[in-house]
Amino acid sequence: MEETEFVECVPLGECGLLLRWPQEPAPHLSRRIRALGEGLDRKPPPGFVEWVPGLRSFAVYFDPDRRSRAAWIEELASLWKTLPEEPDLPVRSFTIPVAYGGEWGPDLADAAQSVGLTPEHWIALHAEATYEVLLVGFAPGFPYLAGLPPALAAPRRATPRLRVAAGSVAVANRLCGIYPCESPGGWTVIGRTGMICFDPLWHPPARFDIGDRVRFHPVALPG
């Protein structure tokens, strides 16, 4: 197992602190980052405001008059050390119906062609894989999913779209994601799902959390 000591520790303004890990984003690291944040939620230190995860980073926001940055660094370092190598998280599994290609996934044909696959083969590979949520963010409820087969890696679009439809399933580099609401976006859109990823009235409001497992199930839609 990789060693996951944080090496970089930088201020995020006078009320924030950013930790960065040197390795590539990976499920193992993300799960420990979630466990670190949940550790703070369970026993909030004085002046704690909130924590925010990154792909290989973690921020804590705090009141510097209640507890200094130096004390926060110590707090997080010791909390990190107490975390088990494999934190016990309540992870769930989801199967997400996706209409691939056509008007639902306008970039599928190009994405398949650029890696020398037929769209059918591309879909089969995409739907065979199991994904894991590395991070939820960017837009409310947007899951960053690891586990895209290397053969399907696609670059970001040179020019981001101004509007990507809600429910769009998209890939970028080695990641897959689902747009929870209509927004601008630079990812390669390969399909669409009707599954709702976020509702402010749910508790918690995001459907996915770090560590959850996701599979995609191709569905045929008329037209």
């Binding site: 995020l12 925010v52 990154g54 980073s57 921020a59």
Partner: peptide
Amino acid sequence: IDSEPVAFGS
């Protein structure tokens, strides 16, 4: 950059 936390004022 791998997406990382930002704040009001970043």
